[in-house]
Design a protein around this nucleic acid. Structure first.
Lengths: 340, 340
DNA sequence: CCGCCCCATCAAATCGTTTTGCCGCAAGAT
DNA sequence: ATCTTGCGGCAAAACGATTTGATGGGGCGG
């Protein structure tokens, strides 16, 4: 195999200069053959390609990045890749940008502001071409430094105060409203909600409240409890709700994990779902169809969000779009299954 | 804020030369202040730090990488980040190497050999410091080029024929044997298995067979069926098994997703688990505790695998270890829950 | 035959660091 | 007084590509 012959003669990596000397041309010409930026005679191109093959030349991307100031790498900053929502989002992004030759650099922040900051800086210092920032709603709290103004950024799930920052936001409010209306339409009377932590998921709460108002359902304060997005948090919140003297007959949960926790409580108390109590979640994670009965929920389009984020990013990176920050909102359709 | 003052005076990024001139020293000195590789007088260091702060200097990592030939970035090549197992693995890796300042570059191959190849090349060209390759068992089929010999690689779940390649392999065989023995010890007689696709998961099958042999359980060919790792695949395989004239009373599934599919069938047929049929999975994904009853399964230590992969990698990257390929095998303990 | 232009190619500068060899200078040893 | 020693700092050469202005030669029109 030619490859190994070359490797044995040459320990470290082959450079463009070696290719050039082998082909009897200048490095410039080799570069032009590779990039196609200037015309090269067919015969010359042939010789160069031959040399490239023989030596097994591969361009050093780091050197290229330094010169061109593009890395063909984009960073995705998420709270936790282990969370299926962000995993799917990341995949959607990766698929969208892969075709254009962009790789993805992922950072887990665990939602901590200092880590968000750190990774933002890290990504910029590494010369990524763009950043998608999906750290939930904490986004608005990040203060971007002046130097960042150049960098294409798209923010998922929230707006970022930055002139060149695009946003893709799942329409939580409409989705939640649909969930609420649906419960009301099905005749449930004492509808409760397990919200996210304070200051989080406000759109989901807002949608729910608006639906309740339209449907003329009173929602006393004790029917609005909070969880921390986890299954356990949902479990505890549901316990509180089920202990109410005027027990709710339906519960809308701000995410699926908490809904699953709520379901745990129902099973534990021997309540049948949806007869004794209906449950609706939000996100439509895989687990939603694993629980019994399957969870009725609002779909959070993670894959699409990642994909559109990639598209927005690329339109800026290519210079195709240079205007002000765009916002694309993605619908969150209600998925009817077995828990209502 | 000092930062914005600097930015307004200077549109593009601040370089080390600018810092040097502002501090009245040479770039060399600034570099030494930053790296600590040579002594710098305290007073000088102070001036330099001051200049750095004032200008908001951040080193250009791309340039640094070019010079030092280290990127502090490691690539992780997985079939699909959306698969919780790989997501957790990736997180374990990221956590392990983050402290040392290494970022992670992730590639989804969907198990396709050409994509594995492509990303391997891509990662090397990008100058990553190491690669962890977790593309299941297809690994052995990758032929590494000569030039790759320098690159630290650790392979998860399989051995790779490469002198410097370490491996971390979950002990599938022992885990599966434990699962099989457990079923036999509980008195199940007609024990079946839903295997992975041909040539995949052979260790899991082997462990199961060995347990059956020890326990003196015959397993006729029709009790060994195959699935494609998915829930749906498990569903179909289970259908076949349950249609057998001599219906199995226990099923060991080569992974949790298929076990969940098997559980679907049991519910559908009105069979109660574990009374009518016992089910054991493999992997211990989150979903295992979401199904009812909770799935008895063998834990596949994804997070630990990622973590040790990171450690192995770093020991080589730092030059602390330079010997032949190591193999660390991780135990896969049986987790008793509700399905047996 | 001259001038012009275009095509293909090259030399050299550049990207922003790190690293190496060298050089003053002051302090301590002889 | 001279000889080491070491400290603190600088200039310049990498690292491996891309990009730009220059150049030589051939074809073509006048």
């Amino acid at each position: 195999m030619l490859r190994s012959e070359a490797a044995s003669s040459q320990h470290s990596r082959v450079t463009i200069a070696q290719v050039a000397s082998r082909a009897g041309v200048s490095p410039t010409t080799v570069s032009h053959v590779l990039s196609g930026k200037r015309a090269v005679r067919a015969a010359t191109r042939g010789t160069v390609m031959e040399a490239i093959r023989e030596l097994g030349y591969r361009p050093n991307i780091v050197a290229r990045n330094l010169r061109t100031r593009r890395s063909h790498m984009i960073a995705v900053v998420v709270p936790d890749i282990t969370n299926p929502f962000y995993a799917v989002l990341t995949r959607g992004l990766a698929d969208a940008v892969d075709a254009a030759g962009h790789g993805t650099y992922v950072c887990n922040t665990d939602g901590q502001h200092d880590r968000e900051r750190k990774f933002f800086q890290d990504a910029m210092d590494r010369g990524v071409d763009g950043i998608v920032f999906a750290s939930g709603e904490t986004a608005s709290q990040i203060e971007l430094e002046e130097v960042d103004q150049q960098m294409p950024i798209v923010c998922i799930g929230a707006q970022l105060d930055h002139p060149l920052c695009d946003a893709v936001i799942p329409d939580d409010e409409t989705g939640s409203r649909a969930a609420g209306s649906f419960l009301a339409a099905r005749g449930y009377e004492r509808i409760a909600m397990i919200q996210g932590p304070p200051h989080y998921g406000v759109a989901r709460t807002a949608g729910f409240r608006s639906a309740m108002q339209v449907a003329k359902r009173k929602v006393p304060a004790e029917r609005l409890v909070r969880g921390d997005w986890t299954r356990k948090g949902g479990y505890q919140a549901m316990k509180t709700l089920m202990a109410l003297k005027d027990r709710p007959d339906a519960v809308f949960c701000a995410n699926d994990l908490m809904a699953i926790g709520a379901l745990d409580v129902a099973h534990e108390l021997g309540l049948s779902v949806p007869e004794d109590v209906a449950i609706v979640g939000f996100d439509d994670v895989d687990a939603a169809t694993i629980v019994t009965p399957h969870l009725t929920t609002v779909r959070n389009p993670a894959y699409e969000a990642g994909g559109t984020a990639g598209d927005l990013l690329m339109s800026r990176m290519s210079g195709r779009y240079t205007g002000a920050g765009r916002t694309v909102v993605l619908p969150c359709p209600l998925i009817e299954r077995g828990t209502v």
